[in-house]
Measured scan of single mutants.
Amino acid sequence: KKYAKSKYDFVARNNSELSVLKDDILEILDDRKQWWKVRNASGDSGFVPNNILDIVRP
């Protein structure tokens, strides 16, 4: 599994996007496009722009 940390707050604008808060740790589900599909600690998933994410190295 790959993880990323959010650098900023992001508010979803539709139901395919995921609202995240700065410093959230997110599991990366799909990173093939500019919007990555991620899952948060609550189990919710959706798309966020990859420019707000930093890859977390294990």
Rank of each mutant, 00 (worst) to 15 (best):
D9L: 05
R32L: 08
N14G: 11
K1L: 03
W36P: 09
V56I: 14
Y8E: 15
R13M: 05
E27C: 07
L18W: 02
R39Y: 03
L21E: 12
K2N: 15
N14F: 04
D44E: 14
E27I: 07
S6D: 00
A41E: 10
K1R: 04
Q34C: 10
E27W: 04
N51C: 13
Q34A: 13
Y3V: 06
N15R: 12
K37Q: 08
I55H: 12
W36S: 14
K7L: 10
D30F: 04
N51G: 11
D54G: 11
A12W: 01
D9P: 06
I28Y: 00
E27Y: 06
D31C: 13
N40M: 05
I28T: 02
N14V: 06
K2P: 02
P58R: 06
N40Q: 06
V48K: 00
K7G: 06
V38K: 00
P49R: 04
N15C: 13
W35D: 14
N15K: 14
F10I: 02
N51I: 09
R32K: 15
R13K: 07
A4P: 00
S16R: 11
L53Y: 01
I25C: 08
K5Y: 06
R13L: 06
V20G: 01
D23A: 12
Y3K: 04
A41Q: 13
V20Q: 00
D23F: 13
D44L: 12
I25E: 11
S42L: 14
V48F: 02
R57A: 12
Y3S: 05
L53H: 02
D31P: 08
K33Q: 14
N51Q: 13
G43R: 05
S42R: 08
V38G: 02
D54P: 01
Q34G: 13
L26G: 01
I28N: 02
E27H: 02
N50H: 14
N40A: 12
V56P: 14
K7M: 12
D54K: 13
R39F: 02
I28D: 01
R57K: 15
K33D: 13
I25T: 15
E17H: 06
L18N: 00
K7D: 08
L21I: 10
K2G: 05
S19Y: 03
N15W: 08
A4Y: 15
L29I: 08
K22T: 09
N15P: 14
S6W: 00
A12S: 09
V11D: 09
N51T: 13
K2R: 05
K33H: 13
R57D: 14
S45H: 03
S16W: 07
V38I: 06
I52L: 10
W35A: 14
K37P: 03
S19P: 06
D44G: 11
F10L: 03
L21D: 11
K5E: 04
D31M: 11
K22M: 05
S16I: 13
K33C: 13
K33V: 07
K5P: 02
K33R: 12
A4M: 14
Q34F: 15
D30A: 06
K37L: 10
P49Q: 04
L26H: 03
D9G: 07
L53R: 00
S6K: 00
W35G: 12
Y8I: 15
L18E: 00
G43C: 05
R39A: 10
L53D: 01
F10Y: 08
V48T: 02
D44N: 15
K5V: 06
D30I: 04
D54N: 05
V11G: 07
W36R: 07
S42P: 04
S42V: 02
Y3P: 02
D9Y: 05
S19M: 04
D23T: 09
V48D: 00
R13G: 09
L21H: 12
S16H: 15
L53C: 12
D31K: 08
N40E: 03
L53S: 02
V48S: 00
L29F: 05
R57L: 10
D31N: 09
G43P: 00
K33M: 13
A4S: 10
R57V: 12
S6C: 03
K5C: 07
N15G: 13
I52H: 15
L21C: 14
K33I: 09
G43Y: 04
N40V: 04
L53G: 06
S19I: 04
K2W: 04
Y8W: 11
I28E: 02
V38W: 00
A4V: 11
D54S: 12
G46I: 02
A12F: 01
N40Y: 03
K33N: 07
N14W: 04
G43K: 05
L29M: 10
D54R: 06
L53K: 00
L29K: 04
K5R: 06
K33E: 15
R13Y: 05
V38L: 07
L29R: 04
F10P: 00
D23E: 12
R57T: 14
V11L: 08
I55F: 08
E27F: 06
W35F: 10
W36N: 04
G43V: 00
A12K: 08
L21A: 13
D24N: 05
D44I: 08
N40F: 02
D44W: 07
I52G: 03
L18H: 03
I55R: 13
D24T: 15
D54E: 09
K7E: 07
P49Y: 02
L26D: 00
D44F: 09
N40S: 11
F47V: 03
S45F: 06
D24P: 00
S16E: 12
K5Q: 05
W36L: 10
I55M: 10
R57S: 13
I52W: 06
S42Q: 15
A41C: 11
P49G: 01
N51R: 12
S45C: 13
D24H: 07
N15H: 11
K22S: 06
A4H: 03
G43F: 04
D9H: 07
P49A: 04
I25M: 14
V56A: 12
K37I: 04
N40H: 14
A12H: 03
K7T: 09
S45I: 03
A41M: 12
D30M: 06
K22N: 04
S45P: 07
R32V: 10
V38D: 01
D24E: 07
Q34N: 05
W36I: 10
K37V: 09
D9F: 07
S19L: 03
R39V: 10
Y8H: 15
I28G: 01
I55V: 13
V38R: 00
N50W: 06
P49E: 04
I28A: 01
I52D: 02
S45L: 11
N14A: 14
Y8M: 13
W36D: 02
D31A: 11
S45K: 15
G43T: 02
W35S: 13
Q34R: 14
L18P: 00
I55Q: 10
R39N: 03
W35L: 14
K33T: 11
G46E: 00
D9T: 06
K5I: 07
W35I: 15
K37H: 15
P49F: 02
K7H: 06
K22H: 07
W35V: 14
N51F: 07
I28V: 13
A12R: 10
P49T: 01
N51S: 13
A41L: 10
I55C: 11
R32F: 09
L29T: 06
E27R: 04
D44P: 03
D31E: 14
L53M: 10
W35P: 12
L26W: 00
L26S: 01
R32M: 13
R13D: 05
D9C: 15
D23H: 15
K2C: 05
D54I: 10
R32G: 14
I25V: 13
V38A: 09
P49L: 04
L18D: 01
A41I: 11
V20D: 00
D30N: 08
P58A: 12
Y3W: 06
F47C: 02
L21W: 10
I28W: 00
A4T: 14
K1E: 07
D31F: 11
L18M: 09
N14M: 06
G43H: 03
N51H: 10
P49H: 12
D24M: 08
S45V: 11
A41R: 13
D44Y: 09
V48P: 00
R39Q: 10
A4L: 13
L21F: 13
L29P: 01
L18Q: 02
